[in-house]
Amino acid sequence: MTDRIAHTSDAAAIERLARKAVDQLPAKFRAHLEDVVFRVQDFADSEMLRAVGLSNPWALLGLYHGLPFGQRSIWSTGDLPSVISLFRRPLLDEWRRQGVSLEDLVTHVIVHEVGHHFGLSDEDMHMIENDGE
């Protein structure tokens, strides 16, 4: 897919890019994402924004909500599934401002949120990203 998908940038288009990003992850990571729910919505709601200390809905591109994989237990029953949310309007705004491909931006956000699923902090992920440069 190319950036022409941005011209039809509805939630389904963003979801297709997110699925492609997940499909490109190594199998050992994908195997632990089977119970994670991925969803696309226009903006984060006020509760989501408060959870990460933000008030501006344009500032949040994605969010992981759930118990990180390494903290789960067989004794945890009845827990809701973990959710990775992508926020369409801020993603499109960021895409237009940065000039990167929409696919690359969605992939970056998916990888970041999957990192949270595996218990990585923002600082951990920044160190990993910087080591790759």
Results as ranks from 00 to 15, higher is better:
2 T>S: 14
2 T>Y: 08
5 I>K: 07
5 I>S: 13
5 I>D: 11
5 I>T: 12
6 A>C: 06
6 A>Q: 03
7 H>G: 14
8 T>A: 13
9 S>L: 06
9 S>N: 14
11 A>F: 05
14 I>M: 05
16 R>I: 13
16 R>H: 15
21 A>K: 03
23 D>V: 01
25 L>S: 07
28 K>R: 15
29 F>H: 09
29 F>T: 10
30 R>Q: 11
31 A>F: 00
31 A>Y: 06
31 A>D: 14
33 L>I: 09
33 L>P: 03
33 L>E: 01
34 E>P: 00
35 D>N: 15
36 V>N: 01
36 V>Y: 02
36 V>L: 00
36 V>F: 03
37 V>N: 02
37 V>K: 12
37 V>W: 08
39 R>E: 15
41 Q>T: 13
42 D>R: 03
42 D>I: 00
43 F>Q: 02
44 A>P: 12
44 A>E: 09
44 A>S: 07
45 D>T: 05
47 E>A: 15
48 M>C: 09
51 A>K: 10
51 A>W: 06
51 A>S: 15
52 V>E: 03
57 P>M: 02
58 W>E: 15
58 W>N: 14
59 A>L: 06
61 L>A: 02
62 G>Q: 03
63 L>K: 01
63 L>V: 04
63 L>D: 05
63 L>P: 00
65 H>G: 10
65 H>D: 13
67 L>Q: 09
71 Q>M: 10
72 R>E: 09
72 R>H: 08
72 R>V: 06
73 S>I: 08
74 I>F: 12
74 I>S: 13
74 I>K: 14
75 W>L: 13
75 W>F: 12
76 S>V: 08
79 D>K: 13
81 P>V: 05
83 V>D: 01
83 V>Q: 02
85 S>Q: 04
86 L>D: 05
87 F>W: 02
88 R>A: 04
90 P>G: 08
95 W>T: 01
95 W>I: 03
98 Q>I: 08
99 G>F: 09
99 G>T: 10
99 G>R: 04
101 S>Q: 02
101 S>T: 13
102 L>D: 00
102 L>F: 04
103 E>A: 15
106 V>F: 02
106 V>E: 00
108 H>N: 10
109 V>N: 00
110 I>S: 00
110 I>V: 14
111 V>R: 11
111 V>G: 05
113 E>I: 10
113 E>L: 04
115 G>V: 07
115 G>H: 09
115 G>M: 02
116 H>Y: 04
116 H>T: 09
116 H>C: 10
117 H>R: 01
118 F>N: 02
120 L>E: 06
120 L>I: 04
120 L>D: 06
121 S>F: 01
122 D>H: 15
123 E>Y: 12
125 M>E: 07
127 M>T: 12
128 I>E: 12
129 E>M: 12
129 E>I: 11
130 N>R: 14
131 D>W: 11
131 D>C: 11
133 E>M: 13
